[in-house]
Every structure is written in structure tokens, then in C-alpha cells.
């Protein structure tokens, strides 16, 4: 099995198409998770039981159930309830549901690790709690959580492969379709592995660059 028989260039166009969908899935659910996770984190840290209990329940449930089951529920379960949301949208929904929990926990850890003296400083300057939070605490927390966030995005990229079970044409699905036709499972999976590695490397590098840039201005 020499290298020229392993990399079959004729598969590349279809795989590139798949890679595009993978990135779209990851980007869409990533952005939605980042947004949705902040209120979720704040709720879960709230002193009031009425607010924190549902948030904590949501986080525990979506964190402790395999993504595959969440995907099934989103795609098939919703269909039973009469919805006809597209598979792509269901994929984004499922990914967002689980990832917002992970990211909420990252936010929570970061927020709690910000020195409590920052709060006191804000009070001393006469700022309201909201002001202190937005101007002083939140930016620091976000900066602290950057490495963990980028790590989570890498995980998200890899998790998109699970969405192949509901017939979304992302990278893994494309390779399975092609390998069914030509029995060249090895060649395809090798190429797919390389593409995933490239994608995750790009994300990790971006994370490092961003960290360095933001640390300079600190």
C-alpha cells in the first residue's frame, strides 16, 4: 500500500464540500453556544433557587447524555411532535444544546476565579453591580476562559462528525457515502483524518495568536 494509492484526489471535491458543511455546523453552533451560555452561567450562579435550579438542571441533563442521543431526540423526537426542521438545523440545535452547557461551566469557572477584590474595588469607586460586572469582571473572565473556550471549539469541530447519523452531508458522511460506492474505506478515512487535523490545528493556532494579542494589551 504505497502513498499514491492512498491519497485519491478524485475524492477531494466531495470531501471539501463535506468539510465546508462541518465548518458551518461548528461555526453556527459555536456562536450560538457562546451567546446562550453566558445568561445560562449567570443563572446557574444566582443566589435565588428559582433561577438557579432550572439552569443547573439543564446543564446537568445536557452534559450527562451522549451527544448521539441528543441528536436523535432533536431530529426524530421533534418529528414526532410535528416539527419539520431540516436535518442541518437539528444538527445545530443538538450541538448548541450540549455545548452551551460546557461553555456555561467554563464561564462559571472563569467568573468565580476573578479576584473578589475587583468587586470591592468597584463598590469603592461607586459603580453599581452591573457596571462593575460589565466593565471590570466580565472582560477579565473572558480573557481567562480563552484557552478553555478554544479547546471546546476543537471538541465541537470533532463532535460535528456525530451529525452524520441524521444524513447531513458533513465530512464523515461524505466519506461514508464514497466508501460505500468504492470500498476504499482506508483511503477515505486517512484523508478525512488529515482534513480534521488541519481544521483543528487552524483553530488552535488562532487561539494562541488571539491569546498573545490580547495579553499584550493587558
Amino acid at each position: 500500500m504505497d502513498i499514491s494509492s492512498v491519497v485519491e484526489l478524485r475524492f477531494l471535491p466531495a470531501l471539501m464540500e463535506g468539510a465546508t458543511i462541518t465548518v458551518e455546523l461548528a461555526a453556527a453552533s459555536g456562536l450560538l453556544s457562546l451567546l446562550f451560555a453566558l445568561p445560562l452561567a449567570l443563572l446557574s450562579m444566582s443566589g435565588k433557587r428559582l433561577l438557579s435550579a432550572p439552569a443547573r438542571a439543564y446543564i446537568e441533563i445536557t452534559r450527562n447524555v451522549p451527544l448521539l442521543i441528543i441528536v436523535y431526540l432533536a431530529y426524530f423526537g421533534l418529528a414526532v411532535a410535528g416539527s419539520s426542521m431540516s436535518a442541518f438545523a437539528c444538527g445545530i440545535l443538538a450541538l448548541t444544546l450540549q455545548n452551551s452547557s460546557y461553555i456555561a461551566e467554563i464561564y462559571r469557572g472563569a467568573l468565580q476565579s476573578v479576584d473578589s477584590r475587583q468587586w470591592e474595588g468597584g463598590k469603592a469607586l461607586g459603580m453599581t453591580a452591573v457596571q462593575t460586572f460589565t466593565i471590570a469582571i466580565l472582560p477579565q473572565a473572558l480573557l481567562k476562559s480563552l484557552p478553555a473556550l478554544f479547546n471546546q471549539i476543537v471538541l465541537l469541530l470533532k463532535d460535528t462528525s456525530v451529525i452524520s447519523v441524521i444524513s447531513v452531508g458533513e465530512l464523515l458522511m461524505q466519506s461514508k457515502t464514497l466508501s460505500e460506492k468504492t470500498a476504499s474505506t482506508y483511503e477515505l478515512f486517512l484523508m478525512v483524518g488529515a482534513i480534521y487535523l488541519i481544521l483543528t490545528t487552524l483553530v488552535t493556532l488562532t487561539g494562541r495568536v488571539l491569546e498573545r494579542y490580547l495579553s499584550f494589551s493587558h
Binding site: A87, S164, T177
Partner: peptide, 28 residues
């Protein structure tokens, strides 16, 4: 149906107007 290009081809030939969705395993 099962996810392979032959099924896709058949669908395109006989029911081109219908929507299609392909799965990797029979229980799906």
C-alpha cells in the same frame, strides 16, 4: 434508504421531485 450512491441514483431517476434523506444504519 441506506446511504450509497446507487440508492441516490435510483431516487434521482424514479422520484426526482421527492426529497431524500440517507442513513448509515438500518435502525435509523
Amino acid at each position: 434508504g441506506q446511504n450509497n450512491p446507487q440508492n441516490a441514483e435510483r431516487a434521482a431517476r424514479y422520484v426526482p421531485k421527492a426529497k431524500t434523506v440517507w442513513f448509515n444504519s438500518p435502525d435509523d
